[in-house]
Amino acid sequence: MNILYEQIAEFLIAGRVNQVRNLTQKALDEGCDPKEIINDALLVGMNEVGDLFKDGELFVPEVLVSAKAMNSGMELLKPLLKDGDIDKVGKCVFATVKGDLHDIGKKLVKMMMEGAGYEIIDLGVDVDPENIVEAVKKHKPDLVGMSAMLTTTMVAMKDTVEALKENDLYEKVRIMIGGAPVTDKYAEEIGAYYSSDASAAVDLANKLMDKNCCKSC
């Protein structure tokens, strides 16, 4: 690997925002390809962050800072990219469900999945089932991700699944859910897939993107 790319990845893992931005600019000044910088430096670093988080060696605040470092590099690279330059693993619509204003967990999952190459459409917090349905119609995602932090709001996940079924969209997407009160049993009951944390969400998304994965997997 290019030494400069290794340095970018190392500083990203360490959450050194300014260094990642400066080295990304240096790589561009030296004629490095923007797509190559993303794939061989930024994504390499973010994937390592995901592994460290999974192993308990990094925690949420550190992951958020690393994600910020990655974004500092991406801000320089995105204007230089053409449509199709970034290889997307899949597309996902994300939302914190109706009645719930918590979004730290959703943001973390979003950052981890973007780091893994997913395109994320973030609908924000307190999102009605109808708005999620409309987003699925508009963006045609592979996955739908929903978050809830309260037992009183997690019922909106079931309402959203039912709304997707009523609009003949349920079979066209895979639904991922997570949050403090959510369990694997509840996910199974409503016809969704459970993720316990951000790192697990990436693993689950990758599994669900497998073309051979069916609703019963």
Rank of each mutant, 00 (worst) to 15 (best):
L58S: 10
E6Y: 07
P141F: 09
N22Y: 12
G124T: 08
A198D: 09
I132S: 11
M111A: 15
L4V: 03
G115T: 05
T152E: 03
A156V: 07
V49I: 03
L123V: 05
K215T: 07
D29W: 08
H139A: 13
L108G: 05
K78A: 11
R16A: 13
D51W: 08
G115C: 08
L28N: 01
P34N: 03
D128N: 15
C214W: 12
A69E: 02
V127Q: 02
I37R: 00
A69M: 02
M154N: 00
D103V: 08
K211I: 07
G56I: 06
V20C: 03
T160Y: 07
L77C: 01
A201Q: 01
E10I: 09
V93H: 07
F94K: 00
M157V: 12
A156S: 14
S216K: 15
D210S: 13
K106C: 10
M146A: 00
R16N: 14
L23E: 04
V155C: 08
G99A: 07
P34F: 04
E36C: 11
P79R: 10
G145V: 06
A180V: 11
M111E: 14
V144E: 01
E57H: 13
N39G: 06
L58A: 10
E57C: 04
C214Y: 12
P79Y: 07
V155P: 00
K78Q: 11
V65A: 10
I121P: 00
A205T: 01
L208D: 08
H102V: 06
K158A: 14
K207Q: 10
M149Y: 03
M146Y: 01
G178P: 05
V136S: 00
A156C: 12
T183I: 12
E114G: 11
R16G: 05
A201F: 09
D87F: 13
L76K: 04
D100G: 11
A156N: 10
K82Q: 15
Y170F: 15
K26R: 15
V97I: 13
A201M: 05
G73I: 12
Y194F: 15
G145K: 02
D83G: 11
K68G: 14
P79L: 08
F94I: 00
L4E: 03
S199P: 02
S199C: 01
I8V: 13
G117K: 01
